[in-house]
Amino acid sequence: MAVDRERCCGAGNCVLTAPEVFDQDDTDGLVLLRDPAPGAASRDRVQRAVDLCPAGAIRVG
């Protein structure tokens, strides 16, 4: 999976949805990937983060 920091608008939905996978950069508040290969336990939450991302900045697959 990948995140696009150029698209990210820093709303923080992904961090709220799957905190084990996503974080926000201390300096600019934009998305950081904590875990580029999240385990099966996170799959549903990651998919939800993809759906909820207002900027469409998260890609899976």
């Binding site: 820093g10 961090v15 201390d26 600019d28 508040g29 934009l30």
Partner: peptide, 9 residues
Amino acid sequence: RMLTAEFMI
């Protein structure tokens, strides 16, 4: 983006 860090979780 000048504000995103201010309001982050």
